[in-house]
Design a protein around this nucleic acid. Structure first.
Lengths: 257, 257
DNA sequence: GTAATAGTGTCTGTTAGACAGTATAGG
DNA sequence: CCTATACTGTCTAACAGACACTATTAC
């Protein structure tokens, strides 16, 4: 048996991969292979602020610092990176059954991004709706021992995170700010998928962009752009002031999954 | 010596990576590692058409089909993926000394994208200016034996390309069409970096978006948005009709590198 | 002069933003 | 009534697109 541990695709049929293409002029074992990891950046909207789900590292390197949920892709079982991101999220935070698919942001491959060995990471992000929060531990104020918690993005500093995750978070946050409108991101933060209120969308937009936007103008713009239609009912009272109407978006209902 | 061939970062100092973190609860060698490759999509504007630089595969799999230049990242020498994309481009096509940096598009990690083993690829793209074409063989009509040549993007069909490269090209082409204006892509296709004419930009824009755009309106828009300034001189005569003025963009001169 | 390409002016409908005004809830 | 929040109307300046018009070259 070769010393390689690369898995041949058709192992039972033709033998190891070297047998499959004996005339291949190059041999993948001649190249070192990196470890391949994924990171998952889960965002939510909480009390008007954009928050991110982080885990506290229990061991070196960067013991005690915070990091994205993530881990190695299970190559042996032919897992793709997106599946790995979902699986690692569940294993490390208990969050399962995402309603939509995470979006690939970028792949980081600097040789020194992990102090131990050459590791590359593909970073995914996902904007989580309120009804998906259930499995995530609530943040406890001042409880540093919590291993998993939401952090307001605005409160995270460079020294708080391990590896290059602060840099990644900054790049990702800039991406969200710049593309909130084009990528329809407010819809992905708002509860109940296709039924929502205009103030909810407005709050999500402001949280994503860190900018103040005139509510009335925003309502008009979003109604026109997404062909929103009032769908009956009002947000249950209890708050102060006039309750908001519910809206739906027929045409692009599934585009916000 | 361990059976792993992962390179410890501080080899001479403390030994192998396992010695560095003996209490680590996880061991990267417990995970299979993928081969890690890059693909480079080089575009140019030629006779009003968007073209891409492809190589013809000389061996299986997909012998005789066309593919992006690319290859394995040299992990052993701590090369990052962007460096690898530039190096492989040079090795496979002779194109060297890119004036700007390639842009990362996406990382593909489906287990079956390479029929031989689990391979992931990070795809980069680069829009090439006319003065960088010199090392690239000119296309020969009907010469199927050429190993490296430019192909008009519009003439590429699914069966012509190997691996999943046609899918990748389609996704990438859609990305370029959708973001030509926002990403200032026409500037990256146009000769001489910061000195250009408005018709050149217009032609580049139409080639990128596959759409007809009123030239006059485009001139006005681009001059305003990029604060273009007429910088003297006119395009050398020889063509028919009025020669175009040269423009420059002070404020964002280096943004188009 | 004509032909061809480069660039400007003008008109019109749309949009973005500021901000005033109206609507509907609780108290 | 009041306050607070949810909208809607109105005005204006900017913008986009259609298209007519002028400008500069070759011949």
């Amino acid at each position: 048996m070769a010393t390689t541990n690369i898995i041949p695709v058709k192992q039972g049929k033709k033998g190891t991969y070297l047998d499959l293409y004996p005339e291949s002029s190059y041999d993948p074992t001649a190249f070192e292979r990196p470890t391949y990891a994924v990171d998952m950046a889960i965002f939510r909207l909480f009390e008007g602020q954009l928050e991110i789900l982080l885990i506290k590292r229990g061991q070196d390197p960067f013991k005690g610092r915070w990091a994205f949920p993530g881990g190695f892709v299970d190559i042996r079982n032919r897992e793709c990176s997106e599946q790995a991101a979902v699986r690692e999220l569940k294993e490390e935070t208990g969050v399962a059954d995402l309603k939509g698919t995470p979006t690939q942001f970028h792949t980081f491959s600097d040789a020194n991004r992990d102090p131990r060995w050459y590791n590359i990471s593909t970073v995914y992000y996902y904007l989580m709706r309120e009804e998906e929060w259930t499995r995530v531990p609530a943040p406890k104020e001042g409880d540093d021992a919590a291993e998993v918690r939401w952090w307001p993005v605005s409160k995270i500093t460079k020294g708080k995170m391990g590896f290059d995750h602060y840099t990644i978070l900054t790049l990702l946050h800039m991406h969200l700010m710049a593309n909130a409108w084009e990528l329809s991101l407010p819809f992905k933060l708002v509860p109940k998928r296709s039924v929502f209120t205009l103030p909810e969308l407005h709050e999500a937009y402001e949280a994503l962009t860190s900018a103040k936007v005139d509510a009335g103008n925003f309502y008009k713009a979003v109604k026109k752009r997404y062909m929103l239609r009032r769908c009956g009912g009002k947000k249950a009272a209890g708050g102060v002031g006039r309750p908001a109407d519910y809206y739906t978006s027929d045409g692009v209902r599934d585009a916000f999954a």
